[in-house]
Nucleic acid binder design. Structure first.
Lengths: 343, 343
DNA sequence: CAAATTTTGGCAATCGCTTGCCGTTGCGGA
DNA sequence: TCCGCAACGGCAAGCGATTGCCAAAATTTG
């Protein structure tokens, strides 16, 4: 029963210090250390300071695992995006990343590969691993989404549902602007180049366009679906040309940029022969050739907002009345890919 | 008993099933369930199947927290990049993401904001949270890196060190190619537009250029440092012009693209007045105006390789002889931003 | 000055899973 | 028939923190 059971400072370079090590050094119980560190006002200031000092000396880092196990929270938020390589999601990810870090959360990034089943599987696995989910452009059905939302705190981005808070980017609104812009340039025949069938956004956008067009007597057609990649642009461009439209609105900038390249190859001049409007104002939209007229919005802000809404949901006390819906404003960013209709 | 897509057959709809629930239902001990699920050959096939069946029925998902606590492994790998919004790192991230998912690991994405202290802090916190680290373009000193590598399994990307396995992209080699390309176009005065001082790569590239240039009697100068963003391009372009060089090699495509834009504004023609070579062949390099001659490499592959090397380090048994260094090949992707030197 | 509170801090029970250590079984060989 | 060896499965001790409950100490109150 040696009193001085050699509390080695750094004798064992491998083992990380635990609250127990701190407790021993401070001559208190582990519970006190735990409280001092994660519930400061629960402990006397002097004791706390002593403990904090020792913790710092030892370079103590709490085990999120252990903490999670006993507290039930993991300190991680999962962000699910259909495709990590799509620049649109970069901005979302940057937004969530910033806001999460600021709030002391860890970001789990998951690529769902635009596939429903991958998404479902991820959701299932994350049930235990994350405190909440941010689901960007979900491919899930309403029922699946409702189910998921029942299981764990969830915020969707660009996918409305009554069952979870949502951050929407008001692209449909901007689609109308885009149409007006085209109309004022003399275009009367417009083609919408649609995105993936499973995308909620593409339907929403098409509906907005269709409606706005019929109101002002413009003729709109729709082609697609196309995968949201620049490589789909070639096929899209060829198909778009066959519709005889003088102006094109693309599901997103990726497709639009792909079309731009294809038109260049085929000697179709933009905007002289055909005008193109993209959507999202992604990285590259301003320096492609010609620079793309597109629908811009604070995407990064959308990511941040989603995080805020999720955290508010996680602890309803602090966040105040949690919002159920946030709509991010959009505006038409006019560049050089749109011009007067061909005579 | 509901027939189709039966909801979790549980008394308490909230509580997630644990191995204990399975054990009870199967009439075995929790240890058997644990083994059946994570160490299959340790358990009789019949028992295992029964357990697996029940687990499936219950939609059992193991708690990575609990598993981590007792096993010491977290099942997560952290990927640290200086800037999540830099397209170069997005390709890395995509690579690591794919490979990690394939290996059953979770990816923790961390943005170190190009800052040493953020990087160090992240490393410290992750000590407990991740089984290993992939450190892209680390800003750490050799000593700090060595220390970090001692603390936990680590693989660096684009940052050589004797203390950890490394994936290198052979940009210096390609720099030489770039220089040759420029020489063959008649350029004799070249400026290197440098990246951040803390970047190991920028020094490495500069050295390669300097050496190659002196060998073939070309005159090279260096300007910078510039932050690796398109927005730095304007200042870089102006400064580059003042050097009187007819060809520019940029630290990366971001800067190069920014310069392209600035030159366009200023009425400087590329490549007629000045040639530009970028580096990385990021998203956008092929469709900017003019398309950028740049140094391409399998970046995504680099990410995958890094993961492989890390996993090999984690369990040395399976991975075989772990490699200490992987060099990814590069090649000069010639596009339209380079042309004959002005007479 | 005693009683009523409020602070502090300790005890010990978890959280869900892994794993070292053993006791049972079943089976082939002597 | 009996023994030894695997194979199989159970027990129970953790992993590192959190937290409800309770007692001692400090403080306020009557």
């Amino acid at each position: 029963m040696t009193a001085s059971s050699a509390p080695p400072a750094s004798s064992d370079p491998e083992r990380l210090p635990t609250i127990r090590d701190i407790a021993e050094r401070a001559g208190v119980a582990t519970s006190t250390v735990s409280r001092a560190l994660s519930n400061p006002q629960r402990v006397n200031a002097r004791t706390r300071e002593r403990i904090e000092k020792i913790a710092a000396e030892l370079h103590y880092v709490p085990s999120s695992q252990a903490r999670g196990l006993s507290s039930g929270r993991t300190g991680a938020i999962a962000v699910l995006v259909p495709d990590v390589t799509n620049p649109f999601y970069f901005d979302i990810i940057r937004g969530t990343q910033n806001q999460l870090k600021a709030s002391g959360y860890t970001q789990l990034l998951v690529d769902t590969e635009e596939a429903t089943d991958v998404e479902l599987e991820a959701l299932r696995r994350l049930r235990r691993t994350a405190d909440g989910i941010i689901l960007a452009a979900s491919r899930l059905t309403d029922a699946q989404l409702a189910e998921a939302a029942r299981q764990q705190p969830l915020v969707t981005i660009n996918r409305a549902t009554a069952d979870a808070p949502t951050v929407l980017i008001d692209t449909p609104g901007a689609m109308v602007q885009a149409l007006e812009h085209l109309a004022s340039l003399g275009h009367s025949k417009v083609t919408y180049v649609g995105g993936p069938t499973s995308s909620w956004s593409t339907h929403r956008r098409w509906k907005a366009i269709e409606e706005a067009a019929s109101r002002r007597g413009m003729e709109v057609t729709r082609i697609g679906p196309y995968s949201p990649k620049t490589s789909s642009g070639a096929a899209a461009a060829d198909a778009a040309l066959r519709t005889g439209a003088t102006a094109l609105i693309a599901f997103n900038d990726l497709i639009a940029i792909g079309m731009l390249q294809r038109f260049r190859e085929r000697g179709v001049r933009v905007p002289e022969d055909v005008s193109i409007v993209g959507c999202d104002d992604i990285f590259g939209a301003d320096f492609c050739n010609p620079p793309l007229t597109t629908i811009a919005s604070p995407i990064e802000q959308a990511g941040r907002t989603a995080v805020s809404m999720l955290l508010a949901q996680l602890d309803p006390l602090r966040g105040g009345m949690p919002r159920k819906l946030a709509v991010m404003p959009t505006h038409l960013q006019i560049r050089a890919s749109t011009g007067p209709a061909k005579a």
